[in-house]
Design a protein around this nucleic acid. Structure first.
Lengths: 153, 153
DNA sequence: TTAGATGCAAATCTTTTGCAGTGCG
DNA sequence: CGCACTGCAAAAGATTTGCATCTAA
């Protein structure tokens, strides 16, 4: 769960980030961002839509997609790659990585310092300009691993 | 482009890999694997289908999807995460990473030793069992970077 | 005032599924 | 010969688009 102070910091900088990105601060954008800022569950556009709808009943799923795309373009959110179907988003944008459970689909955060160190000194290969790096660890979360073990025994 | 010797090695071990995986060696599977083994272009299921169809005109796209899924399950291929739409596959399964061009969508391979070193000593976080690690470097390939620069000047 | 945003519905694209028929081992 | 595999067509999801209508700056 996200620390209240961190949520506060995210919400506080939101208007500035929008201005810098040339995006208008609309109720829809604020609500989508606020929802994302308060969770570390890496929700899908669909889940975000469901949640935000409680406040803005007219919010359309298409708008959620558009807003998320814009946020992504301007670095306000991250999009987590998906060995599965629906995209996942994250308001945390500092150097961290993702644990994706192949069984239940849950996505967790992890910070691996040596990995960050290695990533920061990546040689620029053959003129390729690296803009973002994504590291996804796929496997089984502790619950699913325990379950698999139990089933086997 | 893939070295002929490497293509040969891949094709040679294919029947054994199938047997070990409990998969029958069908013409469809052989053709799909052969196509993938001979390229490093990380083709989509659609592209694979188009290519293999020249030999097996009746091959259905659904079968391509099924076959790729099975190959993936048994480690014969990798699936590259997609900040875009369609999935991409790769018959190269040793420790390497991917460069994804945000402009043209091309996917290249890269080996970064220090990164492999860091990955090999990942602490098993909170009981999470890591089975695969995927590293994707997003940015601009040399051509697109040059183009962007030219457009700006 | 007006460029940019939203909502809706339809379109598009990717992937999955059910099932009858086929073929590998 | 039996069970796994394939092809087809239809379904299911996810995401995008066109356009008329609003609204933040």
């Amino acid at each position: 769960m996200v620390h209240p102070d961190e949520i506060y910091r995210r919400l506080e900088r939101f208007p500035r980030l929008c201005r810098e990105a040339g995006l208008k601060v609309t109720p829809q954008r604020s609500a989508v961002y606020a929802m994302l800022a308060a969770t570390d569950s890496h929700p899908t556009p669909e889940a975000i839509h469901q949640a935000v709808r409680r406040e803005l009943p007219n919010l359309s799923l298409a708008t959620v997609y558009k807003v998320l795309d814009q946020f992504l373009d301007h670095g306000l959110v991250l999009k987590v790659s998906k060995p599965e179907q629906a995209a996942r988003y994250d308001a945390r944008v500092d150097g961290h990585h993702h644990l994706v459970c192949e069984s239940c689909g849950r996505i967790g955060d992890i910070v691996i310092e040596p990995l960050n160190d290695a990533l920061s000194q990546i040689p620029v290969a053959e003129g390729f300009q690296v803009r973002r790096v994504e590291v996804v660890l796929q496997g089984l979360c502790s619950e699913c691993a325990a379950e698999a073990q139990a089933r086997q025994a």
